[in-house]
């Protein structure tokens, strides 16, 4: 834990968890509509962590992973990503295209754009839900896709977060479809300035 990390009080953290919970609910609904399959979500974990520790937080750091990253603009800017293991990505491709590439080299324009769309829909529905709750404009910018070791994807995102407003709070959750053995992880890293605006829009006390 970074000694310089801003501390948040229990009310703020639980409020964020609740908002994330609703946001993820919207995202799960969106992906269910897109794929015609039921998706479940886990209760989001809100953690105050050192940014540099994020890449090693995922279990299988070297596992082949598909990541969709979207920088977030508006009043609560930050960084958002949706990641899933290769096997889950293949399940998504099968659901949406009827077939899946066997290896990353086989990813063509069509496969890439389908994946970008999955991430786009998930991330945007999450952000829209948060935006509506707090009445602040928040919007995602065009998504970027990586097919890589999990740690390398997360590093690239952390690096972007470091160049903006380095701050250490992450919201993670798992979205899964049992039927298709597909699961993915959300990661949202808001900037400190964005978080302050979020809390004040909800009438919560300033960060101590």
């Amino acid at each position: 834990m970074d000694g310089n990390a801003p501390e948040f009080n229990a009310i703020q953290i639980s409020c964020l968890s609740e908002m994330a919970n609703i946001g993820v609910g919207h995202a799960a609904t969106a992906i269910a509509q897109m794929t015609n399959k039921p998706f479940q979500m886990s209760v989001p974990t809100v953690r105050s962590v050192e940014l540099e520790a994020i890449p090693l937080m995922v279990g299988a750091v070297e596992e082949l992973t598909v990541g969709i990253y979207m920088p977030v603009d508006g009043d609560v800017p930050g960084h958002m990503a949706f990641l899933f293991p290769w096997r889950s990505a293949q399940a998504f491709w099968r659901l949406l295209l009827g077939q899946a590439p066997d290896s990353p080299e086989q990813i063509g324009e069509l496969e890439a754009s389908v994946m970008l769309e999955v991430g786009n829909i998930m991330n945007s529905s999450f952000l829209n839900a948060i935006s509506e709750m707090c009445g602040l404009p928040i919007h995602a910018t065009p998504p970027l896709l990586a097919v890589e070791m999990a740690a390398a994807i997360l590093q690239a995102i952390v690096l972007e977060a470091t160049t903006t407003d380095s701050h250490a709070l992450s919201i993670e959750t798992k979205v899964s479809c049992e039927e298709e053995q597909a699961e993915g992880y959300f990661l949202f890293i808001p900037t400190l300035g964005g978080l302050k605006r979020l809390f004040s829009s909800l009438g919560l006390p300033e960060v101590a």
Binding site: G67, Y69, A112, P143, L144, L145, A146, V147, E148, A152
Partner: peptide, 11 residues
């Protein structure tokens, strides 16, 4: 020193 995000507009 790789460029990991290699798909998507503006990547």
């Amino acid at each position: 020193g790789a460029q990991v995000f290699n798909f998507g507009s503006g990547s």
